[in-house]
């Protein structure tokens, strides 16, 4: 059974793993150069500002390539679900070959277990290899970008850590399940892609924030935590930063009684927080004057933030991987039930 499974999987497996081998080789060759460039740059910058500027330029320079690599890691689970999972059983049923396979001296449970087990492991291995290689390669970039974007934020989160392995397992199981239900290869592939994409959108939006209860609280608005202050017509909106590399879920101003404030009074916007005129030669720090923050404090305005701090990355990774593992097991169990009971 193992031989047959590997024989049937040969082509699809070879394509993906060959691609990964090429990717891995390329990253292995270019990785040290990238790390050296970053190390040299950070060593040679004299002031904090210069260092920040170097990091910014460094990220911008490699952004396109980094984005492409992240896209590969994010896309691979979907690819695996569509091209490995969906056809696994659907193609057999479509061609009627399941009736050939099931009448050898192997029970269909074993038949399915070997197929799902081997190709499922291959799916997880493929995702693991991709995420490991890209993670390693992009370490300097992640370090350079750290203050502005961190791995805990959506999209970056999806392409780092161990979650991609969970996604791949889930996508594969989803593909197999859809294939078992739909029984035709092409529709199964299309449905798998659609459902998996929907899950990948829905989870960061609605599920991941609540896997672990986020931190929440109202903080004073200070020059230290101000992220942006925007004056548009008469309305003033304020956003603060909860901390370096946090994943902010909610960020709005509340009044003294804790109610959400849609519009800050124009008096503040026009008064203490009015944008300063051009100050040629001034070496005052950019941003509003201290009176602005005093005005917020006086009138009882605070900023309400809900966020996951940066050190939640691994707990969230484990929680999300666990969630996908449970989904994967559920789908796989369903496949076994359905294959034993409902397919002929």
């Amino acid at each position: 059974m193992i031989w047959l499974t590997l024989r049937q999987f040969r082509l699809q497996g070879a394509v993906v793993f060959a691609g990964l081998a090429v990717l891995g080789a390329a990253l292995l060759i270019t990785g040290p150069g990238l790390a050296d460039e970053y190390a040299a740059g950070t060593a040679s910058c004299a002031t904090d500002n210069a260092c920040e500027e170097f990091a910014r330029q460094f990220v911008i320079k490699h952004q396109a390539l980094y984005g492409a690599l992240l896209a590969i890691v994010v896309g691979l689970p979907g690819l695996v679900g569509v091209f490995w999972g969906a056809p696994l059983i659907a193609r057999e049923i479509e061609a009627g070959t399941h009736r050939l396979a099931w009448n050898q001296s192997v029970t269909r449970t074993r038949w399915l277990a070997v197929k799902v087990g081997l190709v499922g492991l291959a799916s997880m291995a493929a995702a693991g290899i991709a995420v490991f290689a890209v993670d390693r390669w992009s370490d300097p970039l992640a370090a350079a970008a750290a203050p502005r974007s961190s791995r805990i934020m959506p999209l970056l989160f999806d392409a780092h850590g161990i979650a991609p392995v969970g996604y791949a397992a889930f996508a594969f199981a989803l593909g197999v399940t859809v294939g078992v239900l739909v029984r035709r290869t092409l529709p199964a592939m299309a449905i798998t892609l659609a459902v998996f994409a929907a899950v990948q959108v829905a989870v960061p939006l609605w599920v991941r924030p609540h896997l672990i209860p986020p931190e929440r609280g109202a903080v004073a608005i200070t020059s230290g935590n101000l992220d942006s202050l925007m004056l548009h017509n008469d309305s003033l909106t304020v956003r603060t930063q909860a901390g370096a590399g946090t994943w902010t879920l909610e960020n709005h101003t509340v009044d003294a009684s804790g109610r959400k404030v849609e519009k800050l009074p124009a008096s503040i916007g026009a008064g203490p927080c009015a944008p300063p005129g051009p100050r040629p030669g001034s070496d005052a720090p950019p941003g509003p004057a201290q009176e602005c923050f005093d005005a917020f404090a006086q009138q009882g305005y605070k900023q309400y933030v809900v966020y996951h701090p940066a050190d939640r990355f691994w707990p969230l990774q484990w929680a999300e991987t666990g969630l996908f593992a449970v989904l994967t097991l559920g789908l796989t169990g369903f496949c076994f039930y359905w294959t034993r009971r409902r397919i002929s």
Partner: peptide, 9 residues
């Protein structure tokens, strides 16, 4: 069992 349409891979 030789199934209908004699399926083979």
């Amino acid at each position: 069992y030789v199934a209908q349409d004699t399926p083979t891979y």
